[in-house]
Amino acid sequence: MKIMLVDDSRTMRNIQKNVLAQLGYSDIVEAADGQEALKVAEAEKPELILLDWNMPKLDGLGFLKEFRGANKTTPVIMVTTEAEKARVVEAIKAGVNNYVIKPFTPELLQTRINETLEKKAA
C-alpha cells in the first residue's frame, strides 16, 4: 500500500515513517506543503494520506478541499496540533476520515491508521 505523508516538518514525517515501518508499510511518498501534495497525489495515487494542517503555501484544509473535488474515496487522516472542536468539525466537513492530535504516541497513530484502513476495507 502506498501512503503519502504531508507535513512541512521532516522530523514529523520521519517519526510517522517509523510508525508506518513498524506496521509493515514501506511504500511512502512525501510532500512538504499542500501544493506539493496535490502534485504528488496526482502522480503517485496514494491509498492513504496523513495530512498536517498548518503548512506554508497551501495548508492541509486547502489541500483537502481541492483533493476531495476529484477524489472522494482515498482515506485521509489529519495529523495536527489543531485540537479545538470547531477545527475538528471543519476538517470532517471538508472530508477528513480520521484525526490525530499532536503530540501523539506511536500507539495512538497506529490505532488511527488501523481503524481507518479497516473502515476502508469494510
Binding site: 512541512d8 516538518s9 521532516r10 522530523t11 514529523m12 498548518n54 503548512m55 506554508p56 495536527t80 496540533t81 489543531e82 485540537a83 479545538e84 470547531a86 492530535i101 499532536k102 503530540p103
Partner: peptide
C-alpha cells in the same frame, strides 16, 4: 526543523486550552 516542530506543538497544545477562543497559529 525539530526545534520548530517542538515550538509548533507547544503553541498548538497551549491554544487548545484557551477556553474555546478562535486562535490561529503561525508556521
Amino acid at each position: 526543523d525539530a526545534i520548530g516542530e517542538l515550538a509548533n506543538m507547544v503553541g498548538g497544545n497551549a491554544k487548545s486550552r484557551f477556553d474555546g477562543k478562535n486562535v490561529n497559529l503561525s508556521c
